[in-house]
Simulated assay, not measured.
Amino acid sequence: MTHWIRLATLAAAAALAFGAAKAQTYPNKPINMAVGFAPGGSGDILARLVSSRLATALGQPVVVENRPGAGATIATSYVASAPADGYTLLFVTSGFPGSTALYPKLKYDTVRSFAPVAKVGASPVVVVVPAASPSQNFGEVLAAARKAPGKLNYAAGGGGATTTSLAAEFLKSEAKVDMLMVPYKGSGPALTALLAGEVDMGFDIPSSALPHIQSGKLRALAVTTAKRSAVLPGVPTVAELALPGFEVTGWFGVLAPAGTPAAVVERLNREINAVLAQPDVKERLASLGVEPAQGSPADFAALIASETKRYGDAIRRLGLTAE
């Protein structure tokens, strides 16, 4: 027995030494960062901001690769099956924890299939309408939806497993209104449709919607966080206007495949936290309505586990299924 214990101890020590050695040479080639949405949306904007600074810190290119579709599950499945060597990463939004409840046949698990690297930031979801919309405020939107159930439609970038679409579903449930979701492959295409008047309303993240709000092409009616957004201080919360206690907070982060060496994960976490602490990055994030995060891989893992349960319970309770 002692012999086997000694062998197990030596094997564990060898694995740690191998991981440490690998981290010392990491990275020695370009890194891919997959994004599950089309270019131009909030996830894409933030992934490109983080990846460009991360590339400088690591001394290797960090290439953003857009793989939109199926509520970001295409990109997520791709990364889940990639080699666990730190060269394939996934930029996720807070809709990610709900994917396994919405898509029960997925071959990945949001908790077990990934190594959380770092949370990047948090943001509200903003409810917007085109400037030409007859709805001047959130109350009028709800009144229109109640007057003609199923007639009012809204854009949801990314489809089912996204913060924006889930925020809309939670709002519909709590407000007891029937509105039709029109799914798009990301915030970019959803905003294009909204600006063209092809849909009545949209749910989006300020980082992509803000320029159109500031230009007057879109009208912001409400935000979904418990408190008002610093970047949209004049826009009331859904809780203030109609649904006390209502809260959906969007967040962003970086994952690696499960089994990625801990030393590599720690290196990436350290560098991403350093990027987020840079004054000009903080200023840029603030202008997008995103509050930068600082934390360990364990902190991010705890958030994902908690949100997976919260979103999963809500999705099953509401009987939601992927389109």
Results as ranks from 00 to 15, higher is better:
2 T>F: 13
2 T>S: 15
2 T>H: 14
3 H>Y: 14
5 I>C: 12
5 I>D: 15
6 R>V: 07
7 L>M: 13
13 A>S: 11
14 A>T: 12
18 F>P: 05
19 G>W: 14
20 A>K: 13
21 A>Y: 15
21 A>L: 14
23 A>V: 08
27 P>E: 03
27 P>V: 01
27 P>S: 06
29 K>E: 10
29 K>R: 15
30 P>T: 05
37 F>N: 15
38 A>S: 15
38 A>K: 12
40 G>R: 01
40 G>D: 06
41 G>L: 06
47 A>Y: 06
54 L>T: 14
54 L>S: 15
56 T>K: 15
56 T>C: 09
57 A>K: 14
58 L>D: 11
59 G>M: 07
60 Q>A: 13
68 P>D: 12
68 P>N: 03
80 A>V: 03
82 A>N: 09
83 P>T: 06
84 A>L: 05
85 D>G: 10
87 Y>S: 09
87 Y>I: 12
91 F>D: 08
96 F>S: 12
97 P>A: 11
98 G>E: 12
98 G>S: 10
110 T>M: 04
113 S>R: 12
118 A>Q: 08
119 K>H: 11
123 S>R: 08
126 V>M: 07
127 V>A: 11
132 A>L: 12
138 F>V: 06
142 L>N: 01
143 A>T: 12
148 A>S: 14
149 P>W: 02
150 G>N: 00
151 K>N: 05
153 N>L: 04
153 N>E: 00
158 G>V: 10
158 G>M: 11
159 G>E: 04
162 T>L: 05
162 T>S: 10
163 T>A: 10
165 S>W: 10
165 S>K: 07
165 S>L: 08
167 A>E: 00
168 A>K: 00
173 S>K: 09
176 K>V: 13
176 K>G: 07
177 V>G: 00
177 V>N: 03
181 M>W: 03
183 P>G: 02
184 Y>T: 10
186 G>F: 01
188 G>T: 10
192 T>F: 09
197 G>T: 02
204 D>N: 13
204 D>C: 01
205 I>S: 03
205 I>Q: 06
206 P>Q: 01
207 S>M: 07
207 S>R: 07
207 S>I: 02
224 T>I: 04
227 K>Y: 10
227 K>I: 11
229 S>L: 10
232 L>T: 02
235 V>C: 00
236 P>M: 03
241 L>P: 02
241 L>R: 11
243 L>T: 01
243 L>E: 00
244 P>W: 00
244 P>F: 01
245 G>A: 06
246 F>N: 00
246 F>S: 00
247 E>Y: 05
247 E>F: 02
250 G>K: 02
251 W>Q: 11
252 F>M: 15
253 G>C: 04
253 G>S: 13
254 V>P: 04
257 P>K: 05
259 G>M: 05
260 T>W: 01
262 A>P: 07
264 V>Y: 12
266 E>N: 14
271 E>L: 09
275 V>A: 05
275 V>W: 06
275 V>G: 03
276 L>Y: 08
276 L>G: 02
277 A>S: 14
281 V>C: 02
286 A>Y: 08
286 A>E: 13
288 L>K: 08
288 L>F: 15
290 V>M: 07
293 A>W: 03
296 S>M: 07
300 F>G: 08
300 F>E: 02
301 A>P: 03
306 S>Q: 13
308 T>V: 08
310 R>N: 10
311 Y>G: 04
311 Y>M: 14
